[in-house]
């Protein structure tokens, strides 16, 4: 059942221009960002004495910055993908097709979430070309590449689960999209709030609830159990809310 709905969603993405536009735009923007970071990095190395050049880390200057920027791009790309997933189905009453068949709410939420995640996966797949290029020119410092990909992928899971929830509570996809963008900004702001607060305990709580500290740790290869627990809890929490929101028709 999950595979059936996932396949339908993927076909729906690729029969409309949406998927091609999103993947194309994402590749173009990340390509420009990568090029700029690479140029800045090589210019930086050439501008300083050779014995100091080893202090400038390729990982810090290019890899981490690039993936932090990809995380920022998700602020717009993921709401664009998730906003219509449930709201449009509710508006057009096509969601009734699921409720007329032996499909459960969680199966609908999971398959739609997986479909959006698949699109993100194919976007990230396009960026594989960047390490291949720098490998070609002799830079082989990719120690954190795997965890960098994992960090943006986990963040995408969170943003998608939140986007799906906002899509489930509204019949209007624009409202669902705006709420998703605001939701992601709010997630970032919680961590900023933690930095501004002088109380240690409050600051730690803010840091844990906000997504940025977890993202930054995993991005640098420091994958801790508390981070994994955070991501799993986050996705399950919003998944649960989406299921409940869809089941509201039964209340």
């Amino acid at each position: 059942m999950i595979l059936t709905i996932w396949k339908k969603e993927i076909e729906s993405y690729f029969t409309s221009p949406l998927a091609y536009v999103l993947i194309g735009l994402f590749s173009l923007i990340t390509g420009i960002m990568f090029f700029n970071l690479l140029v800045t990095y090589t210019d930086g190395i050439q501008a300083i004495p050779q014995h100091m050049a080893q202090d400038i880390s390729f990982v810090e200057e290019v890899v981490i910055r690039l993936f932090a920027n990809i995380n920022f791009l998700f602020l717009f790309f993921i709401p664009l993908m998730t906003m219509r997933l449930l709201s449009e189905e509710k508006k057009q009453a096509t969601i009734d097709l699921f409720w007329l068949s032996p499909v459960k709410e969680w199966q609908v939420v999971l398959s739609k979430g997986l479909a959006a995640l698949s699109l993100i996966f194919s976007m990230l797949l396009m960026t594989i070309i960047f390490p291949l290029i720098v490998w070609g020119v002799g830079i082989k410092d990719f120690s954190i590449l795997g965890s960098a990909y994992l960090s943006v992928f986990l963040n995408a899971c969170c943003y998608i689960s939140m986007g799906l929830f906002f899509s489930s509570i509204s019949h209007n996809q624009i409202i669902a999209g705006i709420l998703s963008i605001l939701g992601i900004i709010f997630l970032w702001m919680i961590t900023w709030g933690g930095h501004l607060n002088s109380n240690y305990l409050v600051s730690e709580i803010f840091n844990y609830i906000g997504i940025t500290s977890h993202f930054e740790r995993i991005l640098r290869g420091l994958i801790g159990t508390q981070d994994i627990i955070y991501y799993v809890t986050f996705v399950l929490f919003f998944g649960f809310l989406s299921v409940k929101s869809l089941g509201r028709r039964n209340w």
Binding site: T4, K8, E11, S12, D96, S101, V103
Partner: peptide
Amino acid sequence: NPPLYLDMTVEGYLKLVAKLHN
């Protein structure tokens, strides 16, 4: 108002419904 996916073909849509109903 029949629950129709306008971006699907007639055959694809009916196959989807049949799959959903096992």
